[in-house]
């Protein structure tokens, strides 16, 4: 379709040389969407609250989707069971949090943040380990067969969710944030929830870390090259399989991390908590362009912010608006906002 435009973006994202050459249009669209929403919402304070909530949601979707898009881009493996790692991360957070009430009940920001970081580490490591097993038992045997991949990873997800129910029960559990992270502070007449701000910080830091490790490290170089042409990387003598397993484990760990963020955001947890986020993650991957971290980040924010504005203006249309947005973006750029691959 627009071959000219897309090949240009491949170059500009592929190299980090010139900032001017970069494709700024999608970012402009996010800002434009926010400004248009300001006109419709009317009140700037409500708009600020909505935007922050949307940003926080976008960060969580990004955290979950980032691993998935790299795995998909690199090895063409589509993991429909990714949501299971979100669930496992969320439940691990719940388990760890109930064990260290001392740190979370204390009204001390440092202790609380330390507790949260400990929770995140446990959840990410646990989900990553599970991802490693999942790759070995479930995914390894179905490389190259999309149909079986979708079926088998879906089946794996059901089994994991059921095991979670066996361990923690199927009834809804309540989970509370560490004391000093609860509540909000008021800026002007806008209410800014502390936790949302924290999620935005976490997500942005993760994005920057991923962006720089992809563009400035050797592993990152290999991953980017692998996303573009896996066979060539193998021909040059790199073991792409090992790279892939590593990426799969990291992706699962990130899903666990996302699960922690998501469960505190919701406040309640059930075994299907991962499923809700997965649908958004899929949309974001398609919209962002396979294997593109920047695309994933921008489209996660775009989707969540727009869904949030629409949910405020016309509550019934929130999910539908997301799909309309996807259709619009894909009609404009059929291979996503920042396409990396030629596939």
């Amino acid at each position: 379709m627009n071959k000219q435009g897309t090949s240009e973006t491949v170059i500009s994202i592929g190299s980090t040389t010139s900032l001017l050459k970069r494709d700024w249009l999608p970012i402009v669209i996010v800002i434009a969407a926010a400004l248009i929403a300001l006109v419709f919402v009317g009140s700037p304070s409500i708009w600020l609250t909505l935007t922050l909530a949307g940003l926080a949601m976008g960060m969580m979707v990004f955290i979950v989707a980032s691993g998935l898009t790299l795995v998909f881009g690199l090895m063409d493996v589509l993991n429909f069971g990714h949501g299971a790692f979100v669930t496992v991360g969320a439940y691990l957070a719940y388990a760890v949090l109930t064990m260290m009430t001392g740190l979370t009940v204390a009204d001390n920001l440092v202790l609380n943040v330390l507790a949260l970081i400990a929770v995140v580490i446990v959840a990410a490591v646990g989900a990553g380990f599970l991802g490693w097993i999942f790759e070995r038992i479930i995914v390894r045997r179905v490389y190259g067969d999309h149909l079986k991949q979708i079926l088998i990873t879906m089946g794996g997800m059901i089994v994991i969710e059921q095991v979670v129910m066996m361990i923690w029960g199927s009834q809804e559990q309540l989970i509370q944030l560490p004391t000093s992270l609860r509540g909000a502070f008021v800026m002007g007449d806008a209410v800014v929830e502390k936790y949302r701000l924290l999620v935005v910080v976490f997500g942005s830091v993760l994005f920057l870390a991923m962006y720089f490790s992809l563009s400035h490290t050797r592993i990152g170089l290999l991953i980017r090259a692998g996303v573009e042409d896996a066979e060539m990387i193998q021909a040059l003598g790199y073991r792409i399989r090992r790279l892939f397993v590593g990426l799969f484990v990291v992706g699962s760990g990130l899903a666990g991390f996302g699960g922690v963020m998501w469960v505190f955001y919701r406040g309640t947890l059930t075994a299907d908590i991962g499923g809700e986020l997965m649908i958004l993650a899929f949309i974001v991957i398609i919209m962002g362009g396979l294997g593109s971290i920047t695309g994933c980040f921008i489209s996660a924010i775009l989707v969540s912010v727009v869904a949030n504005y629409v949910a405020f203006l016309v509550p019934e249309m929130a999910m539908t608006s997301t799909i309309i947005l996807l259709v619009a973006v894909i009609s404009w750029r059929p291979r996503g906002l920042f396409p990396l691959t030629k596939r």
Binding site: H146, I279, L326, V327
Partner: peptide
């Protein structure tokens, strides 16, 4: 829409559409 881009997207997009429909029915 979904098959114009990439066949595998069909699975993901149908999942999203089905979810949106279920949400609409509930609302």
């Amino acid at each position: 829409f979904s098959m114009r881009t990439k066949t595998i997207f069909f699975a993901m997009i149908t999942l999203a559409v089905a979810n949106a429909f279920a949400v609409l029915v509930n609302q």
